[in-house]
């Protein structure tokens, strides 16, 4: 029988399979956790509709809790409210940066005006600190990231998109 505090600590050790620098707890996708009898109920809000990591994360959560002594693990998916990158905490943002991924800037600005037409958004390169960077694509190796390039150190890097 696990306590809720123990279960939270365990899940904080489960890395996101595609961005292993942060845990699923730090990513903000674990919305609720309850322990009753020997069952642990975990409520998960997926990041992107089509994120292929969602199912892997579910398996990892289940395996981790079962191995630590939970008798049963019940996973629930919650869509509302939709996940936002605003749920990524400050410490996790620094971990992302250290890992080479620029964390989402500011608030996700849902409902705000959406500028289009060649938005020139420059970011600070997570490797050399230069601001002389350019966006290559609003999409990247995973649904949650955009692709940038540093024109100073010439290295590509990724940006965790605000959503």
């Amino acid at each position: 029988m696990l306590t809720e505090a123990q279960a939270w600590t365990l899940l904080d050790g489960v890395p996101d399979p595609e961005v292993p620098a942060v845990s699923v707890v730090e990513l903000g996708i674990i919305r609720e956790l309850h322990c009753a009898d020997d069952t642990v109920t975990v409520v998960v809000t997926p990041t992107y509709s089509g994120c292929p990591a969602t199912e892997v994360i579910g398996l990892a959560i289940r395996d981790t809790l079962l191995e630590a002594g939970a008798g049963r693990v019940e996973l629930q998916t919650r869509l509302d409210p939709a996940w936002t990158s605003d749920w990524i905490g400050e410490a996790a943002r620094e971990k992302l940066r250290a890992y080479g991924i620029v964390p989402p800037s500011g608030k996700a600005a849902v409902g705000g005006a959406q500028p289009i037409h060649f938005v020139k958004k420059t970011l600070t390169c997570p490797r050399c600190g230069s601001n002389d960077t350019e966006r290559l694509s609003e999409f990247g190796s995973t649904a949650c990231k955009a692709t940038y390039r540093c024109k100073h150190c010439l290295e590509p890097f990724e940006y965790f998109k605000p959503i």
Partner: peptide, 10 residues
């Protein structure tokens, strides 16, 4: 990557 990501979202 962009087209595959959009496909994945859809």
């Amino acid at each position: 990557l962009a087209l595959a990501n959009m496909a994945l979202d859809l």
